[in-house]
Amino acid sequence: MEEPFENSFKLKEFFEENRKKFEKILLSEAVNVKDKIDVILTIGNIDLVNNANKLVIYIIDGNEKELQLFAKQEGIAWATHSIDLSFKLEWIQSIRRTLWMIIEQYNELVSKQITSDFFHLEKEINTQVDTFLNTFFISYSTYKDSLIMAHRELVENLSVPIIPINTSVSILPLIGSVDNFRTSILEEKILTEIGISRIQTLIMDLSGIADMETQVIDHLLKIIDGTSLMGCTTVITGLRPEVVRKMIHLGHSFDSSTKTLGTLQQALKEYLIV
């Protein structure tokens, strides 16, 4: 980045001396945010006013490295607490406008010394504000995506409950929709659990699945083949007519080692007999 603009040190001093004035103007500019300041502080321990002062100092100093680091930290904080992004956008644009008001006042005080260097100054100030915004939104989006993915993986793992009913038999009841992502979770968890728990018979109850896409059926059949390779017999219960019809039309069927029963109760009656 270019060197800080001429007289940046004096402008910084002027800003420090007029910090309260800056804050007052900022709050009058950020109409929708000012009433949310205490709420945001409570929710995410984010002090908007103090952070605004910090951002302005980074901008005046031309400290791009610290500015970007600060923006990344802010992005993570706002994503973590799911705070409305419209407030952040309004707040930063209000900081931009307020900073220019302070610069205008400073310029009047020093007999308009900034005028000759205005275009350089305008480029520096606005570029840094835009850099903060861009870095913030990228950080927010990236971290938010990772939170969503982690939450989804947690939910999907919880929705693949393998329940042991004795030392060699376990039940896997599937409920709700099954997509490609969930079948990947199924594959990993089933094969891992068979290896750890030495499951000899896995009762997979599909009565809670109304329908499955073609790719999901293909993947499920491969998972069942995988259980067979590990010495585990799979028992399928509760297949819905819609799923069966789709398998027939696709020409799919279970291999000879896979047993099918109409209901989970039938399987329990058979495999709970010691």
Rank of each mutant, 00 (worst) to 15 (best):
I248H: 09
F87H: 06
F22P: 06
T263A: 06
F136Q: 00
G208E: 00
I59A: 00
S111L: 12
S257M: 10
F132Q: 00
I162A: 04
D255R: 14
K189D: 05
V110S: 10
I175H: 03
V49T: 09
T192F: 13
I171P: 03
E64N: 10
D84L: 14
Q68M: 14
P161F: 06
M149E: 08
S146Q: 14
D179L: 02
L69P: 02
P241R: 03
D145V: 10
N53Q: 09
S168V: 12
K88M: 13
L268D: 06
I148H: 04
I190Y: 03
R198W: 07
K34M: 10
V160Y: 05
R97H: 08
S146L: 10
K259S: 08
S168H: 12
Q73W: 08
N50H: 09
G44Q: 06
Q105S: 13
T258D: 00
E90K: 05
A267M: 01
T233C: 09
V235M: 00
K65S: 12
G208T: 02
A71G: 02
A267Q: 02
S170N: 00
D61W: 09
D47T: 06
D130W: 04
E64I: 07
L239Y: 08
L85K: 02
E2L: 09
T237C: 02
L99P: 02
L191G: 12
Q215E: 11
L55Y: 03
Y143Q: 06
F181Q: 09
I199M: 01
G226D: 01
T142E: 15
L26D: 00
L48T: 04
N53K: 12
S253E: 11
K88E: 09
G231E: 01
I46T: 04
N126V: 03
E108Q: 15
Y140S: 03
D218R: 15
G44A: 12
T258C: 01
K269R: 10
G262L: 12
I92V: 14
I163C: 05
L67W: 00
L69I: 08
D35F: 14
Y58P: 07
E104V: 11
Q200A: 13
T183Y: 05
L158T: 07
L27N: 13
E3M: 11
S159D: 02
M149K: 15
Y143H: 09
R245S: 12
S139H: 00
T115N: 14
L154E: 13
K36D: 04
V244E: 00
G226A: 14
S8L: 07
E13Q: 14
D145G: 10
E108D: 12
K246C: 05
V110Y: 11
I196V: 13
T135Y: 06
A52S: 11
S116G: 10
